[in-house]
């Protein structure tokens, strides 16, 4: 190992704590992200997960399987008890899908964030309910085909814009919020390290973008490339906010055309110029909002 790769690996505290090859689909960046997560966090954790695409099902780590409806509260219970018995050294970490985060588990997550619970919450955002067969969630992008948003005469894919969770979490006043993706490996590793520290003061939330070859109907070898393109097209800007101060961790000077990302995904194969424009507008609007909030 050399150069940047070696520098990244120097952040690993632990050997790989996941089993070799989990049950995740080939090419899934979430499997990679979970491996890296625990290499950085180490063993002194209790993991929390829900039914869904959660690779940490196959670990050698202590873990609690939770309901999708209340994972953040389940984390709270354990975290509070550990605090009471003086085990603040243990990190409670969740690796949870976008459905359980933005939809059915949102209420407990919002409340736990507002209470300032010391939890590390990672949202594995693959932009739909992938494990149950690609049903639309509120993280599904506008215009996308899913198995509950079809393309036909009366509708053309998902109608609404995404519910942009990272900013929603920021407005809860949590101690650390970041967006991340495996395409920017070192950025992710550094953010996990910061989150591990931030969790001593309150909630740390990492919104991890994980292209899903099955649900996006895209080539599996391109999943990392797509996660990089998502950043380069400003589709998924990389930023972090420590104590509410938002700053970009990757500035895109010359954005790549959104089409480069979209054309890899058959879920957007129907998209026409007008619809692509609408998606661009959503992205521009979000970027402008982030720019306004950013201190750097």
């Amino acid at each position: 190992m050399k150069g940047v790769a070696k520098r990244i690996a120097s952040h690993f505290q632990e050997e790989d704590l996941l089993s070799a090859a989990t049950g995740m689909c080939p090419g899934c960046p979430a499997e990679l992200a979970a491996r890296v997560l625990f290499k950085v966090l180490g063993k002194n954790v209790i993991t929390f997960r829900t039914p869904g695409c959660q690779p940490i099902f196959m670990t050698r780590l202590a873990g609690i399987p939770c309901l999708m409806t209340n994972i953040a509260s389940s984390m709270t219970g354990a975290r509070r008890y550990l605090h009471k018995i003086g085990r603040d050294d243990v990190t409670c970490v969740a690796f949870v899908g976008d459905g359980a985060t933005a939809d059915v588990g949102f209420q407990p997550l919002s409340a736990a964030a507002a209470r300032g619970e010391q939890l590390l919450y990672i949202c594995n955002d693959n932009e739909a309910y992938m494990n149950t067969g690609v049903q639309s969630s509120s993280a599904t992008p506008q215009g996308s085909w899913t198995s509950t948003t079809w393309v036909g005469d009366s509708h053309r894919g998902k109608g609404n814009e995404v519910k942009y969770m990272p900013l929603i979490m920021l407005m809860h006043g949590v101690s650390y919020v970041a967006t991340a993706t495996m395409g920017y490996y070192e950025d992710y590793v550094l953010k996990v390290e910061k989150a591990k520290e931030a969790v001593k003061h309150g909630m740390a939330y990492i919104h991890l973008h994980t292209p899903c070859s099955i649900g996006w109907r895209a080539p599996q070898e391109k999943s990392i490339e797509m996660s990089r393109l998502a950043v380069q097209t400003n589709y998924f800007p990389l930023w972090e906010a420590e104590d509410g101060k938002l700053k970009f961790t990757k500035r895109i000077k010359k954005p790549t055309s959104l089409n480069e990302l979209i054309k890899l995904q058959k879920r957007f194969s129907h998209i026409n110029d007008q619809e692509l424009d609408r998606l661009k507008q959503t992205i521009d609007k979000r970027l402008a909002l982030l720019e306004n909030l950013a201190v750097e």
Partner: peptide, 18 residues
């Protein structure tokens, strides 16, 4: 191969090593 190590870092199943 120049042993840069990126494949090892990026393999999702963790099956590449040096």
């Amino acid at each position: 191969c120049n042993n840069c190590g990126w494949c090892e870092l990026y393999c999702p199943t963790g099956c590449i090593s040096e």
